[in-house]
Amino acid sequence: MVKDTSFGSRILDFIVHAVMVFVVLITLLPLLHVVSISFSNPDEIMRGRVGLWPADFNLDAYFTILFENAHIPRSFLNSVIITVIGTVLNVLFTTITAYSLSKRDLLFRPFFLMLSVLPMFFTGGIVPQFLLIKSLGMMDSVWALTVPVLISSWWLIIMISFFKNFPQELEEAAKLDGCGELQTLIRIVLPLSMAGVVTIALFYGVSHWNSYFSAMLYMRSYDNYPLQLILREIVLQSTMAEQLASQGNAALAEDMSTKLTPESVQYATLVVSIVPMLVIYPFIQKYFVKGIMIGSLKG
């Protein structure tokens, strides 16, 4: 590849790099500020002395959330369980369905495809889903958060496209060696499709990790709450106090606003909720880059 060293190209390179640095900074600085607050002394936070570096470094907020607040470690574990179970089921069901639907000679394929795509445009709505989950006896269980979202139409279509581009010759060779459809999928197709599988696993995982609304509807016991729901409640305390005050409920508002979770603890919880996803990315980056390109080129 010939490198373009012209003046115009250099200027363009400079602009591109400058924009990239700017984007990185505006993304990174708020995150640094959050981390910095979580490691700072609450008095310094109150005095507004925390910037990008912790002021009077201490770990009290982390001790609070890990050892004093019983809900946060428990909810962290719940989030891990929900994410792991949910993602495994998502990947399993999405790949199997996508593989089937990628076969052009599948009977009634157009009908199944249409049926798969429909939920992208119409959903049953919250109330029917709430009743369904309740009548299926799934309330307050991990199944209420994973089963209704087993397959995302969007990722299903992406995977169908991925499997369609899989070399037919490899599948035929596997069948000549005696593999059935399922064996072909498990032994040949999936190992060679890791880029796509890992990419959808990541997106499914992030979606489970960040989800709170379903948990709010279907979880009854505080012990089963995921971390994001606890975090939401912590963050909403101050908003709630202001709402109560605007309703004229001054005493309750004052009561609530004097018992707010300290800012350092709020931010430490936020950091704890971000870390697992940050840790996972580097390990799957090599698949992720390939996987995200799925469907970007024809042929």
Partner: peptide, 15 residues
């Protein structure tokens, strides 16, 4: 495919 699609669409839409 039938089983999978019914699982997927049924869970998100059925009343």
């Amino acid at each position: 495919a039938l089983v999978m699609v019914v699982a997927a669409t049924g869970c998100s839409q059925a009343n």
